[in-house]
Simulated assay, not measured.
Amino acid sequence: MTPIRSNTETIPLHWSLLKQGEASALESLYRLYANALYNYGSKFSADQDLIKECIQEVFVAIWTRRAQLGDPQNVKNYLFKAFRLSVFKKANLLQKQVSYEETEHYPFQASLNIEEEMITAENNAALKERLEITLNKLSARQREAIFLKFYEAQSYEEIAEIMNITVKGAYKVMGRAIDALRDLLSKEDFFLILMLFSIKTDHFS
């Protein structure tokens, strides 16, 4: 699913109306962000029902707690953070763990969509396989930071908020990820993956 970029001028209105009890505002927020949340969730788990359940839980919780809601600076970030927490809690419950505790060891599958214009079709599959094998050698935290930065166009401040780390930590995670890619890839493949990341960022600018 392709993430939907929202019209930032309309989001405060939707949020305000939701807090006032307008069910149509909740529906509008769902339409704006459900695809992006599903895409994010699919990196954590292949269980489609679990992902959909977590998305539903986030929006049900928002509606139930609407009278106590504040005004987040970035609604998408708020939803991503709440959804991420829901996914981790759900995974822990399924594994029969009593308490929720995030660790470095959680699943997050990275994938690439390589534009055909950049490389001939016969080499596309081989290149994608090489790059994805390398990405999956990174830590889950590094893969998630790369996804948020280059596929969701999040700033380092936003990545830190979603992943519940400091801004300095977000820079450190990303820096280590890029360093690892540089060490693991050939110069040609490393240059190409940076080009792909740049293209992804430009698509959202």
Rank of each mutant, 00 (worst) to 15 (best):
S139P: 02
W63G: 10
K149C: 09
R141V: 09
A170I: 05
T201E: 10
Y151H: 12
A82L: 12
Y33G: 03
I165E: 02
N124Q: 14
Y100N: 08
I114F: 06
I162V: 13
A177D: 02
A67S: 12
K90D: 04
P72K: 06
I119E: 04
A91T: 12
L69H: 09
A34R: 13
F88C: 01
A25N: 06
I4Q: 12
Y30S: 05
S24F: 10
I146Y: 11
Y40F: 15
A23Y: 14
A67P: 01
Y156H: 14
H203V: 02
A125T: 11
N123L: 08
V58Y: 13
E188P: 02
F59Q: 08
E117C: 03
N74P: 00
R66M: 10
S111D: 09
D202C: 06
D47P: 04
K43Y: 02
A180R: 11
T201P: 00
Q95V: 01
T64Q: 13
S16V: 03
T103Y: 11
I55L: 09
Y151S: 10
A36G: 15
I199T: 02
P72G: 08
D183W: 00
T103F: 12
F191V: 04
M1F: 05
R130G: 01
M1W: 04
K90A: 10
S155R: 09
A153R: 11
R130W: 03
E129Y: 06
I159F: 06
M195R: 15
A160V: 01
F204M: 07
H14C: 09
Y171L: 05
M118T: 08
Q20S: 14
E57C: 04
L17Q: 15
Q109C: 04
R182T: 00
E129F: 04
L32C: 13
E116C: 03
N35S: 14
A153E: 04
E157Y: 13
L192K: 15
E117I: 12
E161S: 02
N7G: 05
V167Q: 11
P72S: 08
N39E: 13
L85G: 01
M163V: 01
E144F: 10
S155G: 06
M195Y: 08
K89E: 12
A110P: 09
D47A: 04
W63Q: 08
Y38R: 14
A145D: 02
T64N: 11
Q68L: 08
L29Y: 03
Q95P: 00
R176N: 15
E27P: 01
W15R: 11
Y100M: 11
L37G: 03
F80V: 01
I165G: 00
S139R: 13
Y33K: 06
M118I: 10
S45I: 00
L50S: 06
L135E: 06
S86V: 03
E158N: 13
A160Y: 02
A170Y: 07
F190M: 07
I165F: 04
T64H: 14
N164W: 02
I178P: 00
E101I: 08
L192R: 13
L37C: 05
E158H: 10
L37F: 05
H105N: 14
K43F: 00
E144S: 05
Y156P: 06
A160H: 03
A140T: 05
K19H: 07
A25T: 03
K128N: 04
D49C: 04
A34E: 14
A170D: 03
A91C: 04
S45V: 00
T2L: 11
F44Q: 08
Y40R: 12
E158T: 09
E144P: 05
A145S: 14
R84N: 10
